[in-house]
Simulated assay, not measured.
Amino acid sequence: MHIEELHQYCLGKKGVTEELPFGPDTLVFKVVGKVFLLVGLDQINQLSFNVKCDPEYAIGLRQQYEQTVVPGYHMNKKHWNTVYANRELDDEFLKKLIDHSYDLVVKALPKKLKTEVEKSN
């Protein structure tokens, strides 16, 4: 997966916006104002991104894919993973991790905001 593919995949989800709240080097994808993925735009040789993750699932992923999934860099390590693309996981699995993050955020939204997401795009 390349950053362009990641970008298009995230923007293809309902209610998603992109922002640069931490400066020009960190692209943040949000659903109704809630972050579900962060990616550094200054990466040259190795793409990695941070995604939200169920705590138990996060531990399992880190144990199974030690070279690819690590506790979230500069994030709450219980709920966030840093995932390295183009290592042990194929693009479909990477998309599942992005979906999982997006779904966790949407699931936690109040009913009114969930309805907004469903009506968007």
Rank of each mutant, 00 (worst) to 15 (best):
T17Y: 00
K112S: 05
H7G: 01
H79A: 14
F93N: 04
L89G: 04
L27D: 10
K111G: 05
T115E: 04
G23E: 09
K14S: 08
V105N: 02
V51Q: 08
H74W: 12
P21M: 11
Y84C: 02
R62D: 09
K96F: 08
Q63Y: 01
M75K: 12
L20H: 13
S101Q: 10
C53Y: 06
K114S: 03
Y9D: 02
L94G: 04
E66A: 10
E5T: 10
I3T: 12
D103Y: 06
P71V: 13
E88D: 15
K107A: 14
D99C: 10
P71R: 10
L20I: 09
I3H: 07
Y102K: 14
V70C: 06
Y57K: 14
Y102Q: 14
S48T: 05
E92I: 14
F29E: 02
K119S: 00
Y65W: 11
F93I: 15
I59H: 03
V35S: 02
E18F: 00
T68S: 07
D54W: 13
T68P: 01
V106Q: 07
G15R: 06
F29R: 01
N50F: 00
H100K: 13
E118C: 02
C53S: 13
E4R: 05
L61H: 12
Y84F: 15
W80R: 09
S120I: 05
Y9I: 03
E116V: 13
R87E: 12
K30D: 07
Y102F: 15
N76D: 11
F29A: 02
G33A: 04
P55R: 08
K34T: 06
L94H: 14
N50Q: 09
V35E: 02
E116K: 15
G72V: 08
A108Q: 12
Q43F: 03
L38H: 00
V28L: 11
H100D: 00
D54V: 09
K112W: 03
K30R: 14
Y57T: 11
A58T: 06
L11D: 01
G40D: 08
L89H: 11
V117Q: 03
K111Y: 09
L104M: 13
D90M: 14
Y102M: 15
K52W: 07
G60P: 00
K95Q: 15
L41C: 11
K77A: 01
E92F: 14
P110Y: 01
V83D: 08
C53T: 12
D103R: 14
K13C: 03
N50C: 10
Q43N: 01
T82K: 07
Q8G: 03
Y73P: 03
D42G: 13
H7I: 00
T82E: 09
V31A: 07
K111M: 04
Q46N: 09
F93R: 15
K34D: 05
T26H: 00
